[in-house]
C-alpha cells in the first residue's frame, strides 16, 4: 500500500465522512429538541437524490405526488383539530400553511420539471421539495404523540421509516439513480490527485455546519430551539410552543438530509431503500457525541467515513461489519465515562 492509495482512500473517507457528519448533526438536532430518534432520516436523503435524478430527466411526478398526498393528510388533521377545539376561525390560515403551501411547491415542481431548468435550479427545487416533507411528517406522525416517552417515539419513528420506504418505492420506482458530478475538475496537491468533487462536498458540508452554528448561536429562533432542547417546561413558559419548535426542527433536519442526498448522488447509486444503511453510519457518528454534542458527533462521523473507506480496501466484504462494530467500544466508553445524571427536574 503506497502513498497515492492511502491518499485516495483518505479522500474518499473524508468525503463520505462529511456527508455522515451532516446526517449525524441532523439526528442530534432532532433528538435534542423533539426526543425523536429520527430513523427515517435516510429516506429523506434517498428522496433528495431520487428527486434530483428525476428532475434531470424532466420528471417530478414522484415527489409532487408524495408532497400532495401528505399535504392533504395534514390538512385533514388540521381541520379535525380546529373543529374539535372550536377554533374554526383559525382553520383557513392553518390550511394555507399545511396544505396550500406544500401543494404550491408540488405544483411548481410538476410544471417546472419538463422545462429542464439549469442544474443549479434543479438542486434548489429538489431541496425545497424534500425539505417541505419534514414539517409535514412531523405534523402527521410525531406531533400527535409529542408528549409520549422516548420509546414510543422510537417505535413511531421505525414505523414511519418502513412507511417512507414503501412510499419511496411507490412514488420513485425500484430503479436506482445517480446524478452527474458537480464538477469533473481535479488538481495535484503535493503529488496526490484531489478531485474537485470531493473538495466541493467537504466545503459544502463545512459551510452548512457553519451556517447552522450561526443560526443556533445568533438568531432568536435558533436559541429558541436550543432552549427547548435544554428545558422544555422553561421554553413553554417563555412562550416557545413545542409544536413550533418541532416543526422548525424537522424542517431543518429534512433540509440537511436532502442536502446529503444531493451531495451523495454523484458518489453512489441510490435506490428507494438505500437511505437506511447510510443514515445508520450517521447514527454511529452521532453516538460518539452521546446523541447530544455536535462537535463529537461530527468528528465521529468523519472517523466512520475514513474507517469505512480503508476497510473497503482491506476487507471489502466486511466493511459494514467493521463500521458497525465500532459502535460497541464507543458505547462501552460512553457508559463508563458519563455519570448517569437524573433527568433534570
Amino acid at each position: 500500500m503506497d502513498l497515492p492509495i492511502v491518499a485516495l482512500l483518505a479522500q474518499d473517507g473524508i468525503t463520505n465522512g462529511a456527508i455522515y457528519a451532516l446526517l449525524a448533526l441532523a439526528l442530534v438536532l432532532v433528538f435534542a429538541v423533539t426526543r425523536v430518534i429520527w430513523v427515517p432520516s435516510g429516506e429523506f436523503l434517498a428522496y433528495g437524490t431520487l428527486t434530483l435524478a428525476g428532475l434531470q430527466l424532466g420528471k417530478a411526478s414522484g415527489i409532487a405526488g408524495l408532497l400532495a398526498g401528505m399535504a392533504v393528510v395534514a390538512g385533514a388533521m388540521e381541520a379535525w383539530r380546529s373543529i374539535g377545539d372550536g377554533e374554526a376561525r383559525r382553520l383557513p390560515a392553518r390550511l394555507a400553511l399545511w396544505t396550500g403551501l406544500p401543494l404550491a411547491i408540488a405544483a411548481a415542481l410538476y410544471f417546472i420539471a419538463p422545462l429542464q431548468p439549469p442544474f443549479f435550479v434543479q438542486i434548489l427545487l429538489a431541496l425545497t421539495a424534500v425539505t417541505a416533507l419534514g414539517p409535514l411528517l412531523y405534523r402527521i406522525a410525531f406531533q400527535p404523540v409529542a408528549e409520549a416517552s422516548v420509546l414510543v417515539l422510537l417505535i413511531v419513528a421505525v414505523a414511519v421509516h418502513f412507511a417512507l420506504v414503501g412510499l419511496g418505492l411507490w412514488f420513485f420506482g425500484a430503479e436506482g439513480s445517480r446524478t452527474p458530478p458537480f464538477t469533473s475538475a481535479s488538481f495535484e496537491l503535493g503529488g496526490v490527485t484531489v478531485s474537485g468533487q470531493s473538495v466541493l462536498v467537504v466545503a459544502t458540508s463545512i459551510a452548512l455546519i457553519f451556517a447552522l452554528a450561526l443560526f443556533f448561536n445568533r438568531t432568536l429562533y435558533g436559541r429558541a430551539l436550543r432552549a427547548t432542547a435544554v428545558n422544555r417546561v422553561g421554553a413553554r413558559l417563555a412562550g416557545i410552543s413545542p409544536g413550533f419548535a418541532g416543526t422548525l426542527t424537522f424542517t431543518l433536519g429534512a433540509l440537511m438530509c436532502a442536502f446529503c442526498g444531493v451531495l451523495i448522488g454523484p458518489i453512489t447509486t441510490v435506490y428507494y431503500d438505500s437511505g437506511f444503511l447510510i443514515s445508520l453510519k450517521g447514527f454511529v457518528g452521532a453516538i460518539f457525541g452521546g446523541l447530544v454534542t455536535y462537535p463529537a458527533a461530527a468528528a465521529g462521523s468523519l472517523l466512520v467515513g475514513v474507517l469505512e473507506s480503508f476497510s473497503s480496501f482491506w476487507a471489502s466484504a466486511f466493511k459494514e461489519v467493521i463500521v458497525f462494530t465500532l459502535i460497541i467500544p464507543v458505547l462501552l466508553w460512553l457508559s463508563l465515562t458519563t455519570q448517569h445524571h437524573e433527568e433534570d427536574e
Binding site: L220, A227, V230, V233, G234, A235, A238, D344
Partner: peptide, 19 residues
C-alpha cells in the same frame, strides 16, 4: 423550580423571555 436554560448564557435566557 425556575426552569432556566442552564447551558445558555444569562443574555440568551433574557432574550428568550421576550420570545
Amino acid at each position: 423550580k425556575r426552569e432556566l436554560f442552564a447551558s445558555m448564557t444569562v443574555g440568551d435566557n433574557l432574550a428568550l423571555g421576550a420570545f
